[in-house]
């Protein structure tokens, strides 16, 4: 049989999927062992046990200075900022995106501005935000909004335009007003797209969160990584990066499950019928 038609069984697929992870882990451990055997105080590639111990300290041992559990404090601070930023972006995307997608007047008024705004490199806005909003939470949340909202708005606007015109016309012949068409026909049809936009927006959101935290913050996952960088504390940086990745992965999966749960009709096609 041709190679393109050969499919792995479920077990083989899982095994093959895990393989690269194991490979990288082994590669790391071998390299770490070699370096540590030459110089036991080497900091660049700490051993797995060192990293575990460092993380245990971050997660379970109260900080000497303020008695807080740093990992959880950082995680909560970062997640709060992420949630605020993405929440605001979601609201903006839904309102502005729908106005642009549904109303020709809204499109005429807002589309050029949104397009232009989305081309501003968000990180260049950060100094402006720090000056205007101070170094507190608002600037960090603001950066996430600036970095994610324009693309989400445009995605939502396009999604509302992509809805088959037939559905809108059918609603008109059933006596619907513009408001009713927006809320009962177009919005329910673009909500699954909103979730996809949010999943895609998670990536830039994390980038801008960590950037903002690195520059001015007193807590947060990004702040911690850049703080301990001064001491070359790879035993904290590497697990923190892995932790951020895990958090991002969980959020992505949760959003996918939410979509399947809330918009069952969207996920039927292809499965049944």
């Amino acid at each position: 049989m041709r190679l393109i038609n050969r499919k792995p069984s479920r077990r083989t697929a899982v095994f093959l999927g895990v393989l690269p992870f194991i490979f990288v882990a082994i590669l790391y451990m071998v390299a770490s062992d070699i370096r540590l055997s030459q110089n036991p105080s080497d900091r660049l590639l700490p051993s797995m046990s060192t990293m575990l111990e460092s993380m245990r300290q971050m997660a379970a041992v109260p900080d000497k200075r303020n008695g807080e559990l740093l990992l959880w404090k950082d995680t909560l601070a970062s997640l709060y900022r992420l949630a605020m930023g993405l929440g605001l972006s979601t609201v903006l995307a839904l309102v502005i995106g729908l106005v642009m997608g549904i109303l020709p007047y809204g499109r005429a008024a807002l589309a050029p501005f949104t397009s232009a705004f989305s081309l501003i490199p968000p990180i260049t806005v950060l100094p402006i935000l720090f000056i205007l909003l101070g170094l507190g939470e608002a600037a960090k949340v603001g950066l996430i909004v600036v970095g994610t909202a324009p693309v989400m708005i445009r995605t939502l606007a396009q999604a509302s335009l992509d809805i088959p015109r037939e559905l809108v016309i059918k609603a008109e012949t059933l006596g619907a007003s513009s408001w009713q068409i927006a809320t009962r026909v177009i919005m329910p049809n673009v909500l699954p797209v909103l979730i996809s936009a949010l999943r895609i927006g998670l990536i830039p959101a994390w980038i801008f969160l960590v950037s903002a935290e690195a520059i001015a913050s007193t807590e947060g996952l990004g702040y911690r990584i850049f703080l301990v960088r001064r001491y070359m504390a790879m035993d904290i940086i590497l697990p923190y990066v892995a932790w951020i990745t895990l958090l991002a992965f969980i959020m992505d999966r949760l959003l996918l499950s939410l979509s399947k749960l809330a918009f069952r009709w969207k996920h039927i096609e292809g499965d049944s019928l």
Binding site: P164, E166, K170, A171, T173, L174, G175, V185, W265
Partner: peptide, 20 residues
């Protein structure tokens, strides 16, 4: 000048609301 309830329509496709 716009579709109104005095004229009903059935299209070949996309005639019913997929989310309902």
């Amino acid at each position: 000048k716009e579709p109104t309830p005095d004229r009903g329509i059935v299209f070949q496709r996309y005639s019913v609301f997929p989310h309902l």
